[in-house]
Design a binder for these strands. Structure first.
Lengths: 154, 154
DNA sequence: CACAAATGTATTGCGCGCAATCTAAAAGTC
DNA sequence: GACTTTTAGATTGCGCGCAATACATTTGTG
């Protein structure tokens, strides 16, 4: 009788493992990033900005990170206050705000260069398992965030 | 030159896919749970309480969900205000608070019984892929949250 | 050119997560 | 039995996420 609804068991579906594991990964990153003075979302933001290689608008950054201005604006203000990023209106289109990484922001790249390796060690997955996980997560994200996604077989 | 640090690419590691996908899954659940009046963490909490089958302490619930009192106390107060749970001090040990699901809380089980199926349809993964993902996430969680975890090969 | 619609950010409000701190009750210690 | 230590929750503070709303700047339309 303890399992009148077996499909509702916490471990029966993907939701809970995904939820709990992601928070564990976030905590692990946070412990490595704390000495550098970055939160995990701020770290991902810096990765995206470094990767872009030049000035990026808030909306372009949001598209890359799947985040909106409600989250990004205050986060970017904190990065700006910390001297890692500048925010200035685009003269070509005064609606947009262009983000540029400062020299101090670029210097952070060396400081966090070893973070991925250290995290990989903490996670303890072999390459094959990591690739399988990466592939499945990517497909899941496309299925959920992809626009139409009406069909079930890709 | 745009890739002086290839290991820092957003898609090179697991962190970003895990982060973005989890939020996409949470949004999908939220849209299904909104009519029932539950947030996604509240839904997971109800799953844990239903699964327990009887009164549970806050710390026992926290151990199951990997959450602490700082998160659970206000969440449980909201569930209590909504009439889904009661919170009362354990007479045997006045430090502990025992959580009991009300009749209204039990009734929710039927309302959300189809949520896992509907989510599975949205996620669009076949059974094999879901099992691989489930297994890898579980191993990852144990590696990160397991106590010692000194060794690299399980 | 006036004027409505669309676009890009910012703001507000709420619910997590989590570290740090606090309080009260129980368990150990002498 | 007073005293310290431990344990269980609650509280505070901060940083996300995200929906809803507001605002200013284009852009499209007549």
């Amino acid at each position: 009788m303890s399992q009148a609804y077996p499909q509702l068991a916490l471990d029966a579906q993907l939701c809970f493992p995904l939820y709990a594991t992601t928070r564990a990964v976030t905590r692990a990153y946070a412990s490595l990033l704390e000495p550098v003075g970055l939160t995990y979302p701020q770290y991902l933001t810096m990765l995206a900005l470094w990767e872009a290689g030049g000035p990026v608008s808030v909306s372009a950054l949001g598209a890359r990170l799947h985040l909106d201005s409600g989250t990004l604006t205050p986060l970017l203000k904190r990065l700006e206050a910390a001297g890692r990023v500048t925010r200035q209106r685009d003269p070509e289109d005064e609606r947009r705000v262009l983000l540029t990484v400062t020299d101090a922001g670029m210097a952070l790249r060396e400081e966090v260069a070893d973070v991925p390796w250290r995290l990989a060690a903490l996670m303890g997955l072999d390459r094959g398992e990591a690739e399988v996980l990466h592939g499945a997560l990517g497909r899941l994200l496309r299925n959920l965030d992809g626009e139409g996604a009406a069909d079930a077989q890709p």
